[in-house]
Design a protein around this nucleic acid. Sequence first.
DNA 1: AGCGGGCGCTTTCAAATTGCAAGTGAAAAT
DNA 2: ATTTTCACTTGCAATTTGAAAGCGCCCGCT
Lengths: 146, 146
Amino acid sequence: MKKSDKIRWSGCPVRYAAGVFGDKWCFVLLRDILLHGKRYYGEFAASEEGISTNILADRLSRLEGDDMLTRHVDPNKRSKVFYLPTRKARALLPAFLGMMVWATEFDENTEAPASFAKAFREDPKAAIAWYEAEIDRVNAGLEYSS
Amino acid sequence: MKKSDKIRWSGCPVRYAAGVFGDKWCFVLLRDILLHGKRYYGEFAASEEGISTNILADRLSRLEGDDMLTRHVDPNKRSKVFYLPTRKARALLPAFLGMMVWATEFDENTEAPASFAKAFREDPKAAIAWYEAEIDRVNAGLEYSS
DNA sequence: AGCGGGCGCTTTCAAATTGCAAGTGAAAAT
DNA sequence: ATTTTCACTTGCAATTTGAAAGCGCCCGCT
């Protein structure tokens, strides 16, 4: 069960967003899926941040329940599982990239190249389209499955 | 002490953003400050979501430590305290509004009017400017203080 | 000057969540 | 047939949360 019994974490757009990904681990999972081309459970588990597997499983199923991801058994190796971003998750890209621009400006330890923020500010639509195409490219190698 | 000992929650822009406001309560506090014109401790405490005061105090000081807010004693009534958003917090507005557009599209229980998303999509800069002006307007009534 | 109330926290303690480590069971590889 | 890989699940200690009560300062009243 979720906390949604006490307060409806919907209604207000900000509260809704907080309910879906207002959590460190959901944040980095969405990053891995939307920006780093990760799809397999094992790839998420190996993330630099070191998420533990119980939390990983929990967050993946929450995101699936919130219609952000769909789960698929790899047809070529049925012991492996991958997750694909839904349209809803992909629609977060503009906001996500906006946050990245912000972080790039204010994090003095940022490792993001200045060119990224510059490109996004000059032509946000093009930057978004570029990441969308990346997502499609990664998905293309997997999408002949249930 | 913070969790930053084990993993540096900076470097990667998404991880940095998650470190600063990847938390339900920081999310709603920033909403209240950036979008709802709240400034006083008492106003935050009275938020619809019902944050408890220990968490509120903790999050306010975290946000202050992350240079998102500055704390001020009300010169007219020195038992009251208000918080002002920094330039860094205000710079989140574009990303924040982008998330709101997203939530408005996908939350079936949204209470946000369709006109909001429409206005933002048609002229994001104008929408941002409008909220910036609101923030200035609210601050104007308070900014003759330490 | 004294006193009662409002206000911004801080403390207390139980309950929920997290995180590490060690399973488990199905499927692949050997 | 046996081992290995893989995606979780479980057990348990440690951290975090949340509701409620407490504390100290400031203000307004008398």
